[in-house]
Design a protein around this nucleic acid. Structure first.
Lengths: 148, 148
DNA sequence: AGAACATAGATTGTGCGCAATTAAATTTTA
DNA sequence: TAAAATTTAATTGCGCACAATCTATGTTCT
């Protein structure tokens, strides 16, 4: 009981269930995302594009906590699928402007059912969901503000 | 306000903060894990090995929710580093038995400070941590039991 | 204006993470 | 007991995720 390595046991970790839960939920999305030929990361990227229509790569990265190493190839794939356009900003050639296409907008109609389908899988009561949500953003805030 | 696509907005997702939080915490581990030359996944794998000393790949996978596609190369890397041994079971040649080495045991002493170091980074009050923990395992349970 | 600095995205390399498939060993069933 | 089914790990292929580096473009500072 309570040996000196207690803190190193899996069951005493907070990060592990977070890591495992995140993976399992993403896995639960898969059958629904397969229907619209998107990965989870592509899906959340389309989410910010559906909402903002036009963004620099940099801003997409800020919303999603992703860098260009992840986004550059991912955005190229979304462009190949026809959901977005990528073009340099005329004002500042360093910026790459991502714009949603009509086909990308059309995809939104297909995707609109996904949140409720997933809600049915996870099925957690709304107080717990709210608690979870606020604690997660509290942690994210601490980890990403402190940074600089 | 509350258009028909409200459910598709990033701020209304529960999975996204989970996904982002998981990544940010793993990132927070990195400087400490770098010191002992482990990735996060290797670290949690060592955690189950520190506790159990000897396990089949299958059981490691059950503890960590990982399959052989992830574990086979990861365990080979840990074997190269000298922390574990991999050998077939004589009773059932299908099973691969993973055993911790002395060097692997020694690593535990170096790792023992990591949980508190990370606690200092995340710094969340213990009621919230407890709530988070139990909600996460509730979701994990629903997603992994329902499966079969 | 020219040099130093800063910024944005692309590239490279490593390691997951997982679906799908394969191969070998074992168990079950007819 | 021979054939079919199951179990286990390994392999293959793809897409992240991220650190580190590189390149091109802008900005700032003398």
């Amino acid at each position: 009981m309570g040996d000196k390595y207690e803190a190193l046991k899996l069951k005493n970790q907070l990060c592990f269930p977070l890591y495992a839960c995140s993976k399992e939920i993403v896995k639960a999305y898969k059958p629904y995302l397969d229907e619209i030929d998107l990965t989870y990361t592509q899906y959340i990227t389309m989410m910010v594009m559906w909402e903002h229509k036009e963004l620099r790569v940099k801003d997409v990265g800020k919303y999603l906590y992703l860098d260009s190493g992840t986004l550059t190839p991912l955005l190229k794939r979304l462009e190949e699928k026809g959901y977005i356009k990528r073009q340099r900003s005329p004002e500042d050639e360093r910026d790459l402007i991502v714009t949603i296409t009509e086909s990308g907008e059309a995809l939104r109609k297909k995707a609109v059912k996904i949140p409720e389908k997933l809600g049915a899988c996870v099925d957690i009561d709304s107080e717990k969901a709210q608690a979870l949500y606020s604690i997660l953003y509290e942690i994210i805030g601490k980890l990403t503000d402190a940074e600089k």
